[in-house]
Design a protein around this nucleic acid. Structure first.
Lengths: 164, 164
DNA sequence: GTGGATGCAAAGAATTTGCAACCAA
DNA sequence: TTGGTTGCAAATTCTTTGCATCCAC
């Protein structure tokens, strides 16, 4: 199910083994800076999010933590806390469930969700850049109108060509 | 799909007075064409959606129908049916709830949701057009990659300047 | 008349809350 | 030590399902 896509980023993760720990450290730093404690469940969640380079649902995260016996409620609470400090971004909404992705100073990514398989694929960087520009333009306009603290969510849905 | 609906919408411009009934008729026509029956609850729901020109949640629609005593379950079922025949578009996801909007030959609209008041405001047409173009470009690219039946959702979230 | 649609009740999922025990700082 | 965190259980909220009745066609 997680047969990852060709994101140049996940490739980078595999190549540079150190990057994972770097990312984890950055996340911990952000926790600390926000006055949140670094606990075993939280570390496990962050590791899971880093290992999986795609957005994950609460349920999926909980599944990945089976070995650490982290309560489902804890996942809910942690993700909520992480979202508050913007460590994580609530990225997708599909059938009323939403997916979370780490939000560590990276450019926002845009994805397609397959209606049938529910697999997620990343929009290629070139096209995404164009989209990002348009989105930023809208945000700027909103800011000019007096809106503050603006963010956005974009989701593409379709039927994937590869029905694996 | 969204794009095709956006393009053949020359019916959109009507005189203000007759517009509501026209819209209702168009909706009924679509129901009929799809083999769905025109019932009192469905008419009431459609009228409510037309009267309110903003996207509405299931809950809100149900509230608006208090006088007609339409069951909440019926609203769920109708909205689901309407979505299947694309009479309606599931437009927003906020806190796990989603908002529905009529999808009758109008260009897709993009909205900002205020974090505090939860009020919805429309993105001005000029900026929206730019955004629509970028979105279409992404969809085209996806189609080229083999995706079918593509649609998208976009939501801006921010804090509105007017805290009424 | 017939099959789709509705209302009511009840089941099922998803998410939140309360509280005692726990542990990171 | 101490207040933020966690786990467990239970409460809530949201959404779906079953079924008898109803009504649009």
């Amino acid at each position: 199910m997680l047969a990852s896509i060709q994101t140049n980023d996940s490739v980078a993760n595999v190549k540079a083994g150190a990057k994972v720990t770097d990312t984890l450290e950055a996340a911990c730093a952000q926790l600390k800076a926000s006055g949140l404690r670094i606990t075993r469940p939280r570390l496990a969640i962050l590791e899971a999010l880093i290992a999986r380079s795609e957005p994950a649902s609460i349920e999926q995260i909980h599944e990945m933590l089976r070995s650490t016996k982290c309560d489902l409620v804890t996942v809910y609470r942690c993700m909520s806390a992480f979202e508050d400090i913007q460590l994580v971004r609530r990225a997708f909404f599909l059938n009323g469930t939403c997916l979370y992705a780490l939000n560590l100073g990276r450019p926002a990514r845009y994805h397609v969700v397959c209606k049938q398989t529910r697999r997620i694929e990343e929009i290629d960087p070139a096209t995404a850049a164009e989209l990002a520009r348009a989105l930023q333009q809208v945000e700027e306009r909103l800011r000019a109108q007096g809106y503050a603290d603006i963010s956005h969510m974009v989701e593409f849905v379709g039927t994937s060509p590869s029905k694996l």
